[in-house]
């Protein structure tokens, strides 16, 4: 029983933390239709920035904001490469991801991992410190939930503003944005900044939970985030009261559940990334099959 509870706590903790990244990738992949690979670089960027700032004694919540800003800046670079320099979307992401590896090393002072044990983090100080005793074992879940919820609500709110509506049009029909007298490229850059900001924030929270920043923690993040987004949005599409932003967080928790379940089958730890890729492939195929069926059901009346 305790083992199961431990697993559940682990699933929720990591599911919620990675769910913040899923929110960001939802913006780039689903809204802008931009397969953003720079996520593999911005996730550890968030972690490294946080480690560097907390080591010099900065308030951990402010470190979160700084991580978001650093990620957003990296997203702007991806957008700049794609929009202004006309480099393809995949290549722009790869360039930024590769470049960020050095940037991250520069931030950590050349070390592959930075530990900041016993420094105040969002889990140990402030809000995390004043939690009543019985809730202590769940402090990571509660605080990750708080960050994910605030992030989700702010994103929902933004997507209903004028700028947010324009962002949604930019992904859906860039020509419409042009007709409105606006530059769709600028909206793309804004979207990439938001997406990578959330990703870096996710890396920041994860590093505070582990009290370690690992320069290699970004590998596989694109796959994990995309899988969460696709699982979430396709499973909960029909449920009216679940918005896509909530669905992708659920998607992240579900993905983590699949991953933990697979690892419970006593697969070697080294197989983790392979399992991640396989689950993603299954999600993609299932999603394609489901949308194929839907297309057949709704025949376009103009094509009869």
């Amino acid at each position: 029983m305790d083992v199961l509870l431990g697993l559940l706590v682990n699933i929720l903790e990591e599911g919620l933390i990675y769910g913040i990244m899923a929110l960001g990738v939802y913006v780039t992949y689903k809204i802008l239709d931009f397969p953003d690979l720079s996520v593999d670089g911005t996730f550890p960027l968030g972690a490294c920035v946080t480690a560097a700032l907390i080591t010099i004694g900065m308030n951990p919540w402010i470190a979160c904001l700084c991580a978001f800003a650093a990620g957003a800046a990296a997203g702007c670079v991806t957008g700049f490469l794609n929009v202004k320099l006309k480099i393809s979307d995949l290549l722009s992401g790869i360039l930024v991801m590769t470049g960020l590896y050095s940037v991250n090393l520069f931030i950590t002072g050349g070390k592959a991992t930075v530990q900041f044990y016993n420094k105040p983090t969002i889990f140990s100080s402030g809000l995390g410190g004043i939690l009543p005793e019985p809730l202590r074992p769940y402090k990571v879940i509660l605080i990750a939930l708080l960050v994910a919820a605030v992030g989700k609500l702010l994103l929902d709110l933004y997507l209903r503003t004028k700028s947010g509506l324009l962002l949604r049009s930019a992904g859906d029909n860039p020509q419409y944005v042009v007709s409105l007298g606006r530059n769709p490229g600028r909206m793309k850059i804004i979207g990439l900044a938001i997406g990578n900001g959330f990703t870096a924030l996710s890396g920041c929270i994860l590093s505070q939970q582990a009290e370690t920043a690992n320069i290699a923690s970004g590998t596989g993040m694109v796959v994990m985030a995309l899988a969460s987004v696709i699982i979430g949005t396709s499973l909960f599409r029909r449920v009216k009261w679940i918005r896509s932003t909530l669905a992708v967080i659920f998607g992240s928790i579900l993905y983590k559940t699949c991953l933990v379940a697979a690892m419970q089958l006593h697969l070697p730890t080294n197989a983790l990334k392979l399992v991640m890729a396989v689950i993603f492939a299954i999600a993609l195929v299932a999603n394609n099959m489901a949308s194929g069926r839907r297309k057949k059901q709704n025949v376009n009346p103009t094509q009869i």
């Binding site: 503003t161 700028s163 509506l165 409105l180």
Partner: peptide, 20 residues
Amino acid sequence: LENMALAENKGKPFGLSMGV
């Protein structure tokens, strides 16, 4: 509704006020 709200805002800044 959202399409028309965007269209009506043409020529003005698209900021962080509510879209509709």
